[in-house]
């Protein structure tokens, strides 16, 4: 196994483009090292991107924030301002692993591991986040929902990697939230996850919303029917019932060691409803 720690994006892309066999990016390593240790993968090349300038920085951009690929969950939380604008995203990221893991784990790693249960992903999708993909041919900005294709598979081409996440400026009176269900209280993988962001007008009527569900399909879902169910409402009980029903209807889960189909369908609705209530309260301040 070859380990490289280049100090430019160009050098990293060069290494990845030319690599033969299996190559992997190392940022926090909280998925990579576990997969290597358990024998799931034996990479021929590991490219550590932490030495590349900008990878560990959060910078303000166009009223929003650009978050480097190696920014850890703990750093994201300590930043403060990101969490104030997009509490759902920061809360979701901070749910990953334990306190120790938070010192290493990154949002981009969570995204590119392409697990349907990734906590930060539905929250980022709901916030309208984009991923900046660098590669041998060009740099492109891709909606977060288009990165993962299936469990463990991404849309990234050979030589490409995600260098940062951009969270756009939240419109006035916007609230966000993410909830997940796990059988214990921490250090677990979501059985169902629900991320939501919504904007209300001065009267408390929802004018815009985006809802994303995790762990109920091969990748995080964007559920337009959930958004439709609450846009134009003041999140009354009927709107919440419609939202829950739409979330359950959209869920196409499997039964496995973590949960059953019936359970995931029901709980998708429960969590969408509960997350919406939190986001709505936050939007109204």
């Amino acid at each position: 196994m070859r380990y490289e720690a280049p100090d430019t994006i160009k050098a990293a892309v060069g290494l990845l483009s030319k690599a033969k066999g299996t190559s992997r990016i190392l940022a926090g390593g909280t998925d990579l090292l576990v997969q290597m240790r358990s024998g799931m993968i034996e990479p021929d090349l590991v490219v550590d991107i932490k030495s590349i300038p900008g990878m560990r920085e959060i910078v303000a951009e166009k009223g929003g924030y650009r978050i480097g690929a190696a920014v850890s969950g703990a750093e994201l939380e300590e930043h403060g301002k990101v969490g104030k604008m997009w509490p759902g995203v920061v809360e979701a990221t901070n749910l990953i692993g334990s306190t120790q893991i938070q010192g290493r784990a990154t949002m981009v790693g969570n995204l590119c591991n392409a697990s349907p249960a990734a906590d930060s992903v539905p929250a980022m999708i709901a916030a309208g986040a984009t991923a900046r993909v660098v590669g041998p041919k060009r740099t492109r900005d891709v909606p977060v929902e288009d990165i993962a294709k299936a469990p463990g598979k991404t849309s990234l081409a050979k030589g490409e990697f995600v260098a940062s996440i951009f969270l756009p400026k939240a419109p006035a009176r916007t609230g966000s939230a993410y909830l997940r269900f796990i059988p214990r209280t921490e250090m677990d993988i979501a059985v169902v996850g629900a991320g939501i962001a919504l904007t209300v007008n001065a009267k408390g009527v929802i004018t815009a919303a985006k809802v994303s569900l995790g762990a109920v399909a091969a990748r995080a879902l964007v559920v337009d029917a959930c958004a439709k169910a609450i846009i134009g409402s003041s999140l009354d009980d009927e709107a919440l019932d419609r939202l829950a029903a739409a979330a359950s209807a959209a869920a196409k889960p499997i039964s496995d060691k973590r949960g059953t189909v019936d359970f995931r369908i029901k709980v998708a609705g429960v969590l969408a409803r509960r997350a919406a209530v939190i986001a709505y309260d936050r939007a109204r301040g």
């Binding site: 209280t185 993988i189 060691k257 973590r258």
Partner: peptide
């Protein structure tokens, strides 16, 4: 991860 012994907060 999937053989869930209780953690402290449980």
């Amino acid at each position: 991860l999937d053989y869930r012994v209780p953690v402290c907060s449980d």
